[in-house]
Amino acid sequence: MRIFDPHVHMSSRTTDDYQAMYDAGVRAVVEPAFWQGQPRTSVGSFVDYFDSLLGWEPFRAAQFGIRHHCTIALNPKEANDPRCADVLEVLPRYLVKDGVVAVGEVGYDSMTPEEDEAFAAQLALAVEFELPVLVHTPHRDKAEGTKRTLDVVRESGIAPELVVVDHLNELTVGMVADSGCWMGFSIYPDTKMDEARMVVLLREHGTARMLVNSAADWGRSDPLKTVKTGRAMLDAGFTADDVDRVLWRNPVEFYGRSGRLELSDVDIDPTAGFQGSSVRRGQG
């Protein structure tokens, strides 16, 4: 099973996680820019974070044979802090980087006017920089937030096939399926969505435009939820090709629209041990 986790916050995870992910078949990840638990209070914190997403984290991932890309944005929660909102002016410098495969996470947290403004501005940046967009949907008032999200996406003029609307569940998947946007699902230990429910949704809606992620971060989460969903799919009668489509080909197709995915030298044979030497340097 080859796995591309299209949404995982590896900066919050340990080297043991990287090893376990590699052993389970994970060969590529996308780390979206988001909040960090502890609120940021300045643009400088964002800039250092973006540097980490483009520099240190890919370096760390490479030591474990995993290709790391990222998305860049001002997240919806911190769009509400005037000390952070100016980061919008810095984003163009980052949206041109080789490792940036989408604008994100953007969207709504509490659906404030400030969030409206940041969301619309960043959809416009995605159009300008010809990048896909990763849209977060709110954890509270999710159905209303998702509906409003789709309205804003429609008004922006961006092509729906360049947008993934994430953290969906049984109540929000239908409207996103109808919109033509991609559907993202974060499989969590307790909240959001679990493997069994995901399998049911894949049966009902098919495997096209479906992205399954672990969204693992600094909270209780599990970076192996992608592979566990793959196993649940096989147990439920899906074929290995279905699993490969959902867990590898779909994220490659979606983020590949950036023209910046670099997977050419990724070792996708899960039986081969990672033997790279040069990237393993620096552990002395």
Binding site: G55, F59, R93, K97
Partner: peptide
């Protein structure tokens, strides 16, 4: 350098 990715740096 300040805004560069590792290859640019």
């Amino acid at each position: 350098y300040r805004y560069g990715d590792p290859a640019e740096k």
